[in-house]
Structure formats: structure tokens, C-alpha cells
């Protein structure tokens, strides 16, 4: 922000630092005024979501606050009742993704967005092998060579730190942590720009949770992927997220840098949330 007004001065005072990414790069995700009703219930009521490339944006809030609905809207799973949604990707830069027909929506979802659900049953075929689950993602883009499918899905599973000797086991016999790693491998198989995480570690025990979060952090660092992380667990948000949005009753009550929000909450609801945690 400052370097436009007086660039020389900034370079002199901080010669070693790049300007923050927020000043250099336009945001990847720009969603404005997201609105979703279920009957008379306003699940999401005018929410703006801005996320920059390589950033992890956390969304916290109690159950029913609309945070998962925001994620479903961003994944184009459900039609929105209002709002615009742009992804800054060359071919799509000026398109409101909500206006696309279902073929193009599916295309965007397949190529540019990955998602990890809290419940692995939503994201995986429990009776097919782990590598088959990842390969499905490649199959729907038209890959028809078995050797390529095999090597690419194994590479993706390896990137999500899944034990390579178990790639042919079905998720139904895998532990919860491993199931989440299969979901993650599936989500990043096509190198999407945006990764949506819906309570990815809820229901895992603390030590497994830590290793999964570790993997997420590593993937984010290596691939400069944008992540939007929904969680009710402030510990998870503190570990991963750069910025946080606090939601309640379908509205954003507070947002800012993670440390700022968690250390110095301004909104009464956020204060209550942080204190309940600590």
C-alpha cells in the first residue's frame, strides 16, 4: 500500500523484505455478498471471501453459523441465492462462476478446486482402493493410460504422505488419519489453485491431527496453493491459518490476521469463543 505513494522510502527502510503478498498479487478468490437461503433460514447472509495465492484463510464459528455452507458455495456444489464469485485464473478471470452452466461448473470444480470433507464417506469410495480413489480424479479429465494413472495417483498419495505400501487398500480398512490423507491426495491430484478444507482433522486424535496439519502446511509451502480452512477448533486455525474470518448466524462478525483475532478479539462473540477455548 505504501510503496505506491513513496516507493523509494520503503526500499530504503526495509531493503531485505519483499512487499507483502497482499500488495503484489491480486487475490485468487474474490467472492462478494454470498447469500444462501434454505427455505426461510438465511444460512449465509452477505458474506465476502477474499483469499490471496498461497494464503491459508481460516473460517471459524459455531455449528450452524454457515461456515460449511460458504465452503459448499465456493465449491459450486449448490446454487447461491445471490453474490458473485470470481477465481483469478486466466481463462476465468472475468466470469462470475455462479452464472456458468453445470458443465463449466464441473470443469472448474475438477481442474481448479480440491476439497477435503470432514466425513471421508462424502469424498471417497470406501470399497475402491486408495489409489483408485485418486485415479478417479484423473479419469474424469480423460486420462486413459493405466501406467500414467498409476504413477500420478501414487505420486499424489506420496505428496500427502500416505504410506506407499498401502496404496491398494480400500479406505474402509484405513485409519481416520489415512482416510483424510487419501482425500487430500485426491484433492491435489490435478494441482488445483484452490483447496477447500471442511473440518479436515475433526474426529482425529491429537497426535494424528498434528501430523495431518503438518502435511497440509508442507503442501501449502511447496505448491503455493490457496487454502480455505473451515474449523471450529481454534487450535487448528492458530496452527495453519494466516487470516481468520469469524462467522455467526450467516454473517462475518470479525476478520483479520490470526494472531490479532485470537490474541485481541474485539467482537463480544469472538471474545467469548476465544475464552471458551482458552
Amino acid at each position: 500500500m505504501t510503496d505506491t505513494s513513496n516507493p523509494g522510502a520503503v526500499v530504503k527502510s526495509h531493503p531485505m523484505l519483499d512487499a507483502p503478498i497482499i500488495n503484489r498479487v491480486p487475490p485468487l478468490v474474490v467472492a462478494r455478498n454470498l447469500t444462501k437461503y434454505y427455505g426461510s433460514i438465511k444460512a449465509v447472509d452477505g458474506v465476502d471471501v477474499i483469499a490471496y495465492p498461497g494464503e491459508i484463510l481460516g473460517i471459524v464459528g459455531e455449528s450452524g453459523s454457515g461456515k460449511s455452507t460458504v465452503l459448499r458455495l465456493l465449491n459450486l456444489e449448490e446454487p447461491a441465492n445471490g453474490g458473485v464469485y470470481h477465481l483469478q485464473i486466466n481463462s476465468l478471470a472475468n466470469t462470475n462462476l455462479f452464472d456458468l452452466d453445470r458443465f463449466d461448473k464441473r470443469d472448474v470444480r475438477v481442474h481448479h478446486i480440491g476439497i477435503v470433507y470432514q466425513n471421508p464417506h462424502l469424498g471417497l469410495r470406501m470399497r475402491y482402493s486408495a489409489s483408485g480413489n485418486v485415479a478417479e480424479r484423473l479419469l474424469i479429465t480423460g486420462e486413459r493410460t493405466f501406467g500414467t494413472l498409476r504413477s500420478k495417483s501414487n505420486a499424489s498419495l506420496q505428496a500427502s504422505e500416505f504410506p506407499i505400501d498401502r496404496v491398494d487398500d480400500p479406505p474402509s480398512v484405513l485409519s481416520g488419519g489415512m482416510q483424510q490423507r487419501v482425500q487430500l491426495a485426491k484433492a491435489i491430484a490435478l494441482q488445483p489453485e484452490l483447496l477447500l478444507l471442511d473440518e479436515p482433522t475433526t474426529g482425529l486424535d491429537v497426535s494424528i491431527q498434528a501430523t495431518v496439519l503438518d502435511t497440509l502446511k508442507r503442501i501449502q509451502r511447496l505448491r503455493t496453493i490457496t487454502m480455505i480452512l473451515v474449523s471450529h477448533d481454534l487450535g487448528v486455525i492458530r496452527t495453519l491459518a494466516d487470516r481468520v474470518m469469524v462467522m455467526r448466524n450467516g454473517r462475518v462478525v470479525e476478520q483479520g490476521l490470526t494472531d490479532q483475532i485470537l490474541e485481541d478479539p474485539q467482537d463480544p462473540y469472538t471474545q467469548q469463543l476465544v475464552h471458551a477455548k482458552l
Binding site: 483408485g132 485415479a135 478417479e136
Partner: peptide, 15 residues
């Protein structure tokens, strides 16, 4: 949209 049909064949080849 038949991509998923190959998944069945993929599983057979894997197993």
C-alpha cells in the same frame, strides 16, 4: 460422462 466406468477396470487391474 463415463470416466467413472474406467475406475472399475482400474480396480481390476490393480487387484
Amino acid at each position: 460422462d463415463y470416466g467413472q466406468m474406467w475406475l472399475v477396470l482400474y480396480e481390476q487391474l490393480v487387484r
